[in-house]
Write a protein that binds this DNA or RNA. Structure first.
Length: 485
RNA sequence: GGCCCCAUCGUCUAGCCUGGUCUAGGACACAAGAUUUUCAUUCUUGCAACACGGGUUCAAAUCCCGUUGGGGUCACCA
């Protein structure tokens, strides 16, 4: 089995693209086949080298590995379409020689005019095939007039063509509705349809997995492949990914680039897991998978036919689960690396007290869906904090808790993992408050928020002085001299 | 508009091929409760769907036809 992912480098990889890559990869990996990366850069205007680089990086980050590609070569190279012009020219020549293709001298303006007229009459736009029958004389004349020809593929026969799709079974198209189409531009670059067909043929691709948007193009590809004498691969057209309203993906969510998700601190495995769930299910109730588990369980037969709506809430849940289920040390390492990389914690600050920072990072593990969320959460340890609900601090019960807290903090030497419990007990006893009545004011005074990480951990990290400072800020509007940090 | 694809809770989906076991299962989200002396996690419960209309059949979410709705595609873009 030989499978390929063939992006065009005209932009960054987003969820839609990446999901196609992933499904191809999973299909290959599950069947111990080859996964080939080919770059379709025939659109010289829009293709950019930096996008190619980014595709390598993003795919690599996701854990998708190719065995042949532009960067590592392979037996069927080159893997950049822009470097394969010789093949295209050879096959175009062959087709022309065999009478399966012909030169077309129609100009884009002419074509466009025809199309508009057909549209106006309510007809399906289709090329008139008028250059099919040009005599040598006529061609020579056009040539003299300086018109460079494109090359059209001759679509013959009025029959039907059936695509055997692995996801949709048999899909039949009437041949008469596809007009002769261009396979090579006047500048001798191939069009997408031609390049795809020739490359898939030449590279020995056995299974083509791509978006449903290509389903109606497939007859063209099959026609070309047959004309060139290639073995036609099996096809699988995956359902497209839609935006929240069912509209095509917009840049806001799903079309956000893979790179952006990486910057936000999503784990690649979580992203793959979620993308796989968009249109595929294992058949049982399982939803959480590592990449290896996906490879093991994946089946193209279990890909659904209908479009899937991208749901960020579910992505966040999957991602959060991956974070919670990973090894503790691995988590500590990853999140620290992220915080440092993204400068959420500066190198200097970190070096002054690495353990303190490690401790902070650790306590957020249970309420993270991606690492970048720590940036906001860490504000809780800034020198000054804002109170989400200052009113809460004003009730009589809350005042007594805070007052008791200050008094006790003055009496004790230290707050650490051994002493927090006793401290809390004392506050409880002296203030007469318990449960929520006790913790809510404390939480508000120490963190300024209603929700957050475990309060004991927060107090330990703040330390006795930090706690005292925050309590006094609530009590007197500011910390007493000499007691702040 | 022609052609093609699709149609189960708000969302992702299981079930459909091989009708009965489906008063339609799971998950996210949402709501309530339990655990947590707080928060989060976790657990339990609840809410919520077979688009519509015709057939076929003893029996249809499952098969057939139509309608409606959504998507795709009709380029010298991929």
């Amino acid at each position: 089995m030989r499978v390929r992912f063939a992006p065009s480098p005209t932009g960054f990889l987003h969820i839609g693209n990446a999901r196609t890559a992933l499904f191809n990869y999973l299909l290959a990996a599950h069947n111990k086949g080859e996964f080939i990366l080919r770059i379709e850069d025939t659109d010289r205007e829009r293709s950019k080298p930096e996008y190619i680089e980014q595709i390598f990086k993003d795919l690599g980050w996701l854990g998708i590995r190719w065995t042949e590609g532009p960067d590592i070569g392979g037996k069927y190279g080159p893997y950049l379409q822009s470097e394969r012009t010789k093949f295209y020219k050879d096959y175009v020549k062959k087709l022309i020689d065999e009478g399966k293709a012909y030169y077309c001298y129609c100009t884009p303006e002419e074509l466009d005019k025809d199309r508009q007229e057909q549209l106006a009459q309510g007809l399906t736009p289709k090329y008139s095939n008028k250059c099919r029958t040009l005599s040598d004389e006529e061609m020579a004349e056009k040539h003299r007039a300086g018109i460079l020809p494109s090359v059209r593929f001759k679509v013959e026969g009025a029959g039907e063509l059936t695509v055997d799709d692995m996801i949709r079974d048999e899909v039949t198209f009437a041949l008469e509705q596809v007009g002769d189409f261009i396979i090579m531009r006047p500048d001798t670059t191939p069009t997408f349809h031609f390049a795809v067909a020739v490359d898939d043929g030449l590279m020995g691709i056995t299974h083509v997995v791509r978006g449903e948007d290509h389903l109606t193009n497939t007859p063209k590809h099959i026609l070309i492949m047959k004309a060139c004498g290639f073995k036609v691969p099996r096809y699988a057209h995956m359902p497209l990914t839609m935006g929240p309203g069912g509209e095509p993906l917009s840049k806001r969510l799903g079309a956000m680039s893979i790179h952006e998700y990486r910057k936000l601190g999503y784990r690649s495995e979580a992203l793959c897991n979620y993308m796989a769930l968009l249109g595929w299910s294992p058949g049982d109730d399982r939803e959480l998978f590592t990449l290896n588990e996906l490879k093991e369980h994946f089946s193209i037969k279990r890909v659904s036919k209908s479009p899937a709506v991208f749901d960020k809430a579910k992505l966040d849940w999957v991602s959060g689960m991956h974070i919670r289920q990973m090894d503790e040390n691995e988590f500590a390492q990853e999140i620290l690396a992220f915080a440092l990389d993204e400068k959420i914690i500066s190198e200097e600050d970190y070096n002054t007290r690495p353990e303190w920072y490690a401790h902070i990072l650790r306590i957020f593990r249970n309420n993270l869906s991606c690492y970048s969320e720590i940036k906001e959460k860490m504000q809780l340890f800034d020198t000054t904090i804002e109170y989400e609900d200052a009113e809460l601090l004003k009730s009589e019960g809350a005042r007594s808790v805070i007052a008791a807290c200050e008094a006790i903090l003055q009496e004790i030497d230290v707050i650490d993992e051994n002493t927090v419990d006793n401290f809390l007990k004392s506050v409880k006893k002296r203030s007469g408050q318990k449960g929520k009545e006790l913790f809510a004011p404390l939480r508000m005074a120490f963190t300024g928020k209603m929700h957050g990480p475990d309060l004991k951990e927060v107090m330990i990290i703040l330390g006795r002085r930090g706690c005292l400072k925050r309590v006094q800020t609530v009590l007197y509007g500011e910390a007493k001299n000499g007691e702040g940090t």
